[in-house]
Design a protein around this nucleic acid. Sequence first.
DNA 1: CGTGTAAGGAATTCTGACACG
DNA 2: CGTGTAAGGAATTCTGACACG
Lengths: 98, 98
Amino acid sequence: MSTYKEKKVISIGITSELTGLSERQIRYYEERKLVFPERSKGGTRKYSFHDVERLVEIANKIEDGMQTFEIRREEMKQADIREKMLRGQLNAAFRMRK
Amino acid sequence: MSTYKEKKVISIGITSELTGLSERQIRYYEERKLVFPERSKGGTRKYSFHDVERLVEIANKIEDGMQTFEIRREEMKQADIREKMLRGQLNAAFRMRK
DNA sequence: CGTGTAAGGAATTCTGACACG
DNA sequence: CGTGTAAGGAATTCTGACACG
């Protein structure tokens, strides 16, 4: 379960290097609720490799003219679809059971 | 190729948390040539998840009474064996070729 | 030998704000 | 709206050294 990709261990400086984005951009995307780094006791941000990939995707969409709220909306929609599909599967499994 | 496990992106503070070792211990193991973090331009150390695992192994061996030079020697021996096996395979392949 | 600690300095990160547009 | 920047402060990390044993 403790997968490397999901562990929040990367500082914002390294994250900036890995993504090619400025720290300003990275913090702004957090402000717009697009990424959710953890914090150290001292308050410094910690990102995962998954966050790094997500940040690059976000930046690409912004480059394509999409706005942050649209990106967030789009992602919520995706999550919604996934949930509905899951529900559908569960229901199907339930019906099969009886 | 860019595998998460090998990327040197973790600061010594986080590495300390992940391993349960003190920063002093981690820096000492580097001094004894047991781990090889990269450095940022500013000079701060950066470790990989692989380094984190290696550090825990090192600490375990030290707890078992092994000394750092013994650990290093043991690892060099392992690398030597691996190299010989590889050489053997290459030779076998070469002989088969003709 | 392996590790803790206090010391002083340097690198890193944080927040809130002003700027441009 | 998305991003750059200067500002002041706080958290993080660095090295070399002394200590214990």
